[in-house]
Structures are given as C-alpha cells and as structure tokens.
C-alpha cells in the first residue's frame, strides 16, 4: 500500500460572518487512499485554524461531515480522494445546499432536525426493532440489496441534492418523508395531514437524486413512492367510511 502521493489543490468554500462567500485554495500533498475529510482536517490542523467544518465519527455513523465535493453530495469521511479527483487536479469542497451556512463548510441542521423530530424518525435502534426490510438470501449478498431505515444518519445529503428542495424552504424533503414512511400511516395516522400536503409528498418530482447520493442506502425515493401509496389507500378508504 501507500503508493505515490498526489499533489492536489483543495479549493474550499470560505465564508465568515459579514463576508461575501469565496473560495480559498490550499495546495497539499495527499495519499490518494485517504478520505476527503482527512484532507480538510489537515487544512484546519496545519494551514488555517479558522476553518469551520462539521465532523465527528469519521466512519459514516454520525452523518456530520456531509459536503459537496466537486458538485456532488458526499459523506467526506468515507469518500477516498482517489474517487473524486486525480493527481495534479483541483478538489472543490462546498457546504451542503439548502441549509443555512454557519461558516465556511459548516451548515445549520436546525430546521431539518426539527422536521425529523416532528415525524418521529427513529435513529438508533436495537436490532430486534430494526427489521431488515428485504433480507438477502445470503449475507455475502450485495449490501445495496437490503435496507434499514435505522441506517439513516441524518446527514442531509438528500436535501442538498434534491432539486425540489432548492426552491422551497417549506418542503419537508426526502429524509423527513422517509422517516415518516418508516413510521407508517398505520402506526401513526397523525402523519397523514403532514405528508399529504403541498409541502409534503407531492412536492417530490421524481428526480431520484436523494437515492443516488444517500451514503446509507436508505433509498428515500422508494420510501416516498411507498408513502404515496399509503396515503392514496388511506384517502380511498375514507371515501367509503361513514363519518
């Protein structure tokens, strides 16, 4: 291992309060098998102590280090530099879209987390409660074959990638709707009015970008479609139910 080092330029979005946003370039030597977050952390450790960025677990459990890397939403702690750039090239790192920027790469998760709380999305589950929804026949199977919503790490990548979320502050967004689907209308009928609304399920316009960027294979798009079926079923039933 440890092959030749790469020389790259890390182009980082900078923005301090009262300042206009701009990019700052940090030329640095990296091991291509390092992760993007390692490079960002080194900028903080050795080049600019004022760099603000969120991170915690460094292995895709916490969901704090979501950023836009060369215009694509990535969980930087598990994105090897080799996969997103090449020797001698520039690597652009920006904060997630559709979240207020606190400073530099750090964004404010307040609204997003309050919506996750509203729909009662569960986060850490005992295995007995976290059923695998489509279990593979063998455990050597491709990981993407099975999904558990308990894997949603609330990183916000889906909200950043969603084109519908770009134009509406009120849209609940993929992760939140996925959280509602995990609850299910059968379990929590109160969710019906919330998700069956202008800013709920029906604002999704089937771009499937949420599923494309999700680092945890939670497949929010499929969950939104499933929740639509649940809503249609519930509304249909009510047509025939005596008041």
């Amino acid at each position: 291992m440890s092959p030749a080092k790469w020389n790259i330029i890390l182009k980082i979005h900078r923005q301090k309060q009262g300042e206009a946003p701009h990019f700052e370039e940090f030329p640095m030597q990296v091991d291509p098998d390092e992760y993007v977050l390692d490079a960002v952390e080194r900028v903080w450790a050795f080049m600019d102590r004022s760099l603000c960025f969120r991170h915690a677990c460094h292995h895709s459990t916490c969901g704090a280090c979501g950023m836009r890397v060369n215009d694509v939403e990535k969980l930087t702690c598990i994105t090897p530099i080799r996969e997103v750039t090449r020797d001698g090239a520039t690597l652009k790192v920006e904060p997630l879209r559709n979240f207020p920027v606190v400073s530099d790469l750090a964004v404010d998760m307040g609204t997003f987390y309050s919506r996750m709380e509203t729909v009662g999305a569960r986060a850490v589950l005992p295995v007995s409660e976290a059923e695998i929804e489509n279990p593979p026949t063998t455990w050597d199977a491709d990981e993407s074959q099975y999904i558990r919503l308990a894997d949603c790490i609330e990183c916000g990548l889906c909200i950043s990638a969603c084109p519908a979320a770009a134009t509406s502050t009120e849209y609940l967004g993929p992760a939140v709707l996925a959280g509602a689907q995990d609850q299910g209308l059968k379990r929590n009928l109160k969710l019906l009015e919330l998700v069956d609304s202008e800013d709920g399920l029906w604002r999704c316009h089937s771009a499937f970008e949420c599923t494309a960027v999700c680092p945890s294979f939670v497949d929010p798009a499929r969950r939104i479609m499933d929740l639509r079926m649940q809503v249609i079923e519930e509304r249909f039933k009510r047509l025939f139910r005596k008041p």
């Binding site: 134009t167 509406s168 499937f208 599923t211």
Partner: peptide, 29 residues
Amino acid sequence: MEKQRNHPSPLKFWLWFNPIGRQAGGWAY
C-alpha cells in the same frame, strides 16, 4: 443575511436545470 444565501428560494428555479453532478433521475427531471 449571509446565512440566507444557501437557503432554498423560488428564485433558485434555475437549479432545476443544472445537470452538474446529477445522475439518471436528475437528467430525467
């Protein structure tokens, strides 16, 4: 105010047409 810059806004409708970093579903969109 700066905080708002990264906010969703109807004025950002041009983002609907931005294909950079998108995949099949985004192109379809």
